[in-house]
Design a protein around this nucleic acid. Structure first.
Length: 762
DNA sequence: TGGGGTCCT
DNA sequence: AGGACCC
């Protein structure tokens, strides 16, 4: 739950209003709260921020974004109090092993702080009610519901742990401001230092945006309370760091907005290194080793001084954070990248005991995987060996056969996974000799969706290029259709790779999707729509296998096939209907693991082998055929044009798209302005326009009613996209250079096939 | 000193 | 595989 074990010991003295989250609300005027400082002290003489003029420390986004951070109050305790309301008026602590990981506010009022030992907590509060919080199931499920509710407001929701979410509400704010008289607008909740004097208000329009942001934050919090019964805190600011920091100012169950002109004085209220999220234990120690004890000393430090120890990029990041500058985008991560379960204990010293532990963990994980719907391709075992004074962990991982999960015999699945786990354990310790473990963790990663009937859709696409490295290719889905993706890895083909020199490094591509956001209590408005940027984590492409990804639209079956909880439909909101679903396989090189029975091998990802002579039983036959067919028959795909800029530099505004056809490479290279001409074909005595990424030969053999349906789709989509372009280009408040650099790349919109897949529904 | 997660190297 | 970071 809570971070920072160390500084209770390390940071002696130096009272900190943010340190204990119960201080502020119980004793608002206590302990150096910023509000008791004289306003004059808070006004930044321009000279004092002179060191920030190092250009790398300045925000490239200015105040263009509006970010909301929502933090659930004492989350685990709230969940337990919902389950058992009689706990509400009792001092409650959530126990994990011999630690109280969080407490309700009654307990905090009695002096029980978070992350204290059970013993100490009971001394302070003998009637403390302890509830075990070792099983995270309820917390995880509630946490997912929270994120899903927030996704109804805006598509850009980023989770941080189980109890925090960031939202980029820039677009929502923008659309609301166009229909609101901003002169009458007053912020909701607190604002940082709003009643103090400050020379000039920022004139960029951020005040109105942040004010509107505070209204949205309030609606979000009200929704969490009414739908889930959860109270929360919110912070509203122009970046994630500031939103998070300012939200902690009024706790619990309240919210705070930071208007931009207060940023510097606000940041000055933070003095300790560890108060800045992003400066962790290790960096803190390193800095102190360099003689930099606190933020006041850090802020004026030249980048070059830090770069020696941290590298240039980390040095710049740290300094920016220290100044309250944070251009990192809010990134919706979608369903989790890994599922793990662990237990710690006094001692596990025999193989049977270890097996029993691991069996329990794997059983739980199988349940979670089944409910998630995806299949893991990698298993990792982590152990903590008993070494007094050390909490070091070691891990080993291996690929596992996806076939194990394709069938539904969980007993044999458990058996086989246990075998794999034992194999990994034996790499970590000699199980024939006495050992002493104090923790076992099992983690499934490399989660991929099962291939579904949706893959059929990719029959319409033909790959024109096989870029080197990983490129995300995806079409756009409309709000009334489920969207999924199938990833197909092709064998390496360098013919065009050189011309794709400015493709991103693997793992950094960004996928755009269209979302139509609604706000509860408001009827959906045409303007309230967004382009969502989804950063998709790719598995490292192994060996000589390059890969690309095509997009498929999947019908309602999406929910059944992947990551169920995150794709769950909430009410009738359209905003979370278009979620991505990844299926991945690799084609080409006929590599396969040696150890099939246990799936034990060193490779971290599996190769789906589609060679005709591949041994049977290696992998799901249907899937591979589907994949192979998809590869062969797809040709043109929509491509998210990667940006040379780093992710940090890119904002949520400047998404660029282009469709890939035969001239892809040329266009990437030349950045030329020509549009892909829709292909015209002769059908039923009339000229039909079909999108450039549609395989004409496939289209031709479709039944005529399906053809008509598709044509109607394309027409609709064309019109919609024209609107979209207008909206997007007319409403950006980005720095000029930014905007032009993004519009220099072609707005080429890929075709959308949104209703066709209904033909493949069961 | 929990039981989770993320990303980067 | 480990290490940093977050909760």
């Amino acid at each position: 739950m809570e971070r920072r074990w160390e500084e209770e010991q390390n940071d002696i003295g130096g009272e900190d209003p943010e340190e204990e989250d119960d201080v502020d609300w119980r004793m608002p005027s206590a302990l150096g709260s910023p509000s008791i400082k004289a306003p004059s002290m808070l006004i930044q003489p321009s000279s004092s921020i002179a060191h920030r003029s190092e250009t790398c420390l300045q925000s490239k986004l200015g105040h263009s974004r509006t970010i909301v951070h929502i933090d659930l109050d004492c989350f685990y305790a709230q969940v337990e109090m919902l389950r058992n309301p009689t706990l509400r008026d009792k001092p409650l602590g959530i126990q994990q092993k011999n630690i109280v990981v969080t407490t309700n506010y009654v307990a905090r009022a009695r002096g029980v702080s978070k992350l204290s030992y059970i013993k100490e907590a009971l001394i302070k509060c003998p009637d403390l009610v302890l509830v075990s919080g070792e099983d995270l199931t309820n917390y995880r499920e509630t946490s997912t519901k929270v994120t899903e509710l927030l996704e109804q407001f805006c598509p850009l929701v980023e989770r941080l742990g189980f109890d925090e979410n960031f939202m980029d509400v820039t677009k929502l704010v923008e659309s609301r401001l166009t229909s609101t008289d901003s002169k009458k607008l007053v912020h909701i909740g607190h604002s940082y230092e709003s009643d103090a004097q400050i020379a000039t208000q920022c004139q960029c329009g951020c005040r109105d945006r942040l004010t509107m942001g505070s209204h949205i934050a309030k609606e979000m919090r009200d929704t969490l309370k009414s739908k889930l019964g959860l109270t929360s805190c919110a912070g509203v600011a122009t970046n994630k760091l500031l939103a998070k920091l300012v939200g902690a100012h009024h706790k619990p169950n309240d919210q705070t907005v930071l208007f931009s002109e207060w940023t510097d004085s606000f940041m000055q209220t933070f003095t300790k290194l560890r108060q800045i999220p992003g400066i962790g234990h290790s960096s803190g120690k390193k800095l102190k080793g360099m003689g930099i004890q606190n933020l006041e000393e850090l802020r004026p430090t030249p980048v070059s001084t830090l770069a020696d120890q941290f590298g240039k990029q980390q040095a710049e990041t740290m300094l920016r954070l220290a100044h309250g500058v944070d251009d990192t985008p809010v990134v919706s991560k979608g369903p989790p990248q890994s599922l793990s379960d662990e237990d710690s204990f006094k001692k596990v010293g025999t193989l049977p005991a270890a097996k029993e532990m691991m069996t329990g963990l794997i059983k739980n994980l199988i349940k979670r995987l089944r409910s998630d719907g995806r299949i893991p391709y990698t298993m990792r075992l982590t152990v903590r060996k008993y070494v007094p004074g050390s909490w070091h962990r070691e891990s080993r991982q291996t690929g596992i056969s996806p076939n194990l999960f394709q069938k539904h015999d969980d007993a044999s699945l458990l058996e086989q996974l246990l075998e794999v786990a034992v194999g990994l354990l034996q790499k970590l310790i000699d199980t024939n000799r006495p050992f002493h473990l104090t923790l076992i963790n099992i983690c499934f990663t490399n989660l991929r969706s099962k291939v579904t009937k949706g893959a059929i859709d990719s029959f319409f696409s033909k790959p024109a290029v096989k870029p080197k490295g990983l490129v995300t290719l995806q079409s756009q889905g409309m709000c009334d259709g489920k969207t999924g993706e199938m990833e197909v890895h092709s064998s390496k083909d360098d013919s065009i790779a050189n011309e794709l020199g400015d493709l991103p490094a693997a793992n950094t591509e960004v996928v755009d999707k269209m979302h139509f956001g609604t706000v509860s209590g408001h009827k959906p408005r045409e303007e309230e729509r967004y382009v969502i940027k989804h950063k998709q984590k790719q598995p490292s492409s192994s060996g000589s296998v390059a890969s690309f990804r095509t997009s498929v639209n999947v019908t309602g079956k999406v929910e059944a096939e992947g990551s169920k909880s995150f794709f769950k439909k909430l009410g009738s909101s359209p905003s979370n209907k278009s979620k991505s679903l990844s299926c991945r396989g690799e084609l080409g090189t006929a590599r396969k693991p040696e150890s099939v029975a246990t799936g034990l091998r060193e490779q971290s990802s599996w190769t789906v082998d589609t060679a005709r002579d591949a041994p049977e039983g290696e992998f799901d036959e249907d899937n591979s055929l589907l994949l192979e067919e998809a590869i062969r028959s797809s040709q043109n795909v929509a491509l998210k044009q990667p940006s040379k800029r780093t992710l940090e530099e890119s904002s949520s505004h400047d998404t660029t798209e282009c469709s890939v056809d035969d001239s892809l490479a040329k266009r990437l290279k030349n950045d030329s302005d020509h549009e892909t001409k829709p292909t015209t074909i002769k059908q039923n005595m009339e000229e039909i326009e079909i999108p450039p990424d549609i395989d004409r030969s496939v289209f031709n053999v479709l039944p005529s009613n399906m053809k008509e349906e598709l044509i109607a789709d394309w027409e609709r989509e064309k019109r919609r996209r024209e609107d979209e372009c207008l909206l997007a280009s007319s409403s950006q408040n980005l720095p000029k250079n930014k905007k032009s650099s993004s519009s220099a790349k072609k707005k080429q919109l890929p075709a959308v096939r949104n209703t066709i897949t209904k033909y493949f529904k069961h």
